[in-house]
């Protein structure tokens, strides 16, 4: 996360004058991010956020890292089938 005002009142992830980044954990799914500017992938490459909400893959199965591409649903289904 970055803004035009370096070090301006950084506290607990908040910067002065802007909303906090909000993260929601989706059950068996991705992380939903609101208010972020960029997401760093596992290789250290920054991906700019270009939509109002983004879904970040946490299952490791996506082909569009760091974004979720829905693959987690297939993995969940496979896992459920193997467990029964």
């Amino acid at each position: 996360m970055s803004s035009g005002a370096p070090d301006a009142g950084r506290a607990g992830g908040r910067e002065a004058g802007r909303d906090p980044v909000r993260v929601r954990v989706c059950p068996d799914g991705p992380l939903l991010l609101r208010g972020a500017d960029e997401v760093m992938d596992a290789d250290g490459r920054a991906h700019p956020v270009t939509r109002p909400v983004v879904a970040v893959c946490v299952c490791g199965g996506t082909a569009r890292a760091p974004w979720c591409d829905g693959t987690h649903a297939l993995l969940n289904k496979r896992r459920a089938a193997n467990n029964s």
Binding site: R24, L32, A55, R64, W67, C68, G70
Partner: peptide, 11 residues
């Protein structure tokens, strides 16, 4: 739509 609807589904 792969990327957008992965978000929209959760929203």
């Amino acid at each position: 739509h792969v990327e957008a609807d992965a978000v929209h589904e959760q929203v």
